[in-house]
Amino acid sequence: MADIQHLKDLVTQVRRDIVRQVHAVSSGHPGGSLGCAEFIVALYHEIMDHNPDFNMDGHNEDLFFLSNGHISPVFYSVLAHAGYFPKEELSTFRKLNSRLQGHPTTHEGLPGVRIASGSLGQGMSVGIGAALSKKLNGDDKTVFTLHGDGELQEGQIWESAMYASANHVDNLIATIDVNGQQIDGSTDSVLALGDLRKKFEAFGWEVLTINKGNDMEAVVSGVKEAISLTRKRKPVCILLHTTMGHGVDFMMGSHEWHGIAPNDEQLAEALKQNPETIGDY
């Protein structure tokens, strides 16, 4: 395992990058981005076998698909620190002529992105397709997808969940960011999701819960356990419990910070709570 402190330092740096990107253009989605920082850092810096010298087909690499594309700030920051593109490019986030579009896209050729996402509910299907392609190619690597919990309200998710178990897509790990928040309020108040474990189990998935989704040790060990459950004829689901806005106290646990940017004072406060570690862009 990589030095745990190094992973934590990366997470702190990623959190700085998130709030700075969003602040610079007064738009974007900091809440979910901050909450998923541990998970995506763990994937790219500890878990996945991947090549920053980007190739779309990703033969013999683990692949990651971000289905809830609005948390692009965390994805971009992690990709940059993993070497997919210069971290200075983070300063172009959401600006005209940037490869870092508001929601991730392959269209502008940003290394590390394999599918456009933003319109919700599509990434599990895409992950299944990539996983099937790997099986056909005799490629034994794993496909990871990440979804918001609110995203599970989209019907396509359940089409794909049904397909994956019926067809034993067991080289797929779909992670649900269970933060209990969506744009209009809590998931309970908007459209209650019910018992997600029972739902995925009823759909034929192996389900694993990570209760401390903002604790790096818990995330790394949980995802490694999930990998040990793959290739047993069932797709694997991780219910990753996180706090929206984690790491910035005034953003934590509220849907209010789903899609708004901090002002100058709020940025200063957020950065104070997350001191520079690896180096700002």
């Binding site: 087909d57 698909f65 599918i115 599990m124 895409v126």
Partner: peptide, 8 residues
Amino acid sequence: GIAAGMTI
């Protein structure tokens, strides 16, 4: 979606 993913 699966078709899109299989191109990868």
